[in-house]
């Protein structure tokens, strides 16, 4: 499956880029799976994804839990808890 993955705030800084297109294997079925698959790349990815409980996500611009299915997803964003206002 081909996905555009976006990173924000310290997730973006640790990974060193804001956006990339990835092709994930079939066993990557949820956002949590994607986080684990990215962490396995090591380096900045492992650092950014070290504490999944500190991560939030959106699929196609809608907030979702990390257990959300990637079925039909085109854009996945991974980011820390929001701090606007």
């Amino acid at each position: 499956m081909r996905l555009t993955v976006l990173y924000f705030a310290w997730v973006r800084e640790r990974i060193g880029q804001a956006e990339e297109v990835v092709t994930v294997p079939a066993e990557v079925a949820t956002v949590a799976d994607l986080v684990g698959w990215l962490a396995a790349r090591g380096g900045g990815y492992a650092e950014a994804m070290a504490a999944p409980e500190r991560l939030r996500a959106a699929i196609d611009q809608n907030f979702v839990g990390l257990d959300a299915s990637l079925a039909g997803a085109r854009e996945v964003a991974i980011f820390p808890p929001v701090t606007g206002g």
Partner: peptide, 25 residues
């Protein structure tokens, strides 16, 4: 304003004496 704080994707980064840090939720 209450919902905006938790439901909209914004992130704050503060700089003090040239040192930047992300604000915690």
């Amino acid at each position: 304003i209450d919902r905006l704080k938790t439901d909209a994707p914004f992130w704050k980064r503060e700089t003090r004496d040239g040192q930047a840090s992300w604000v915690e939720a």
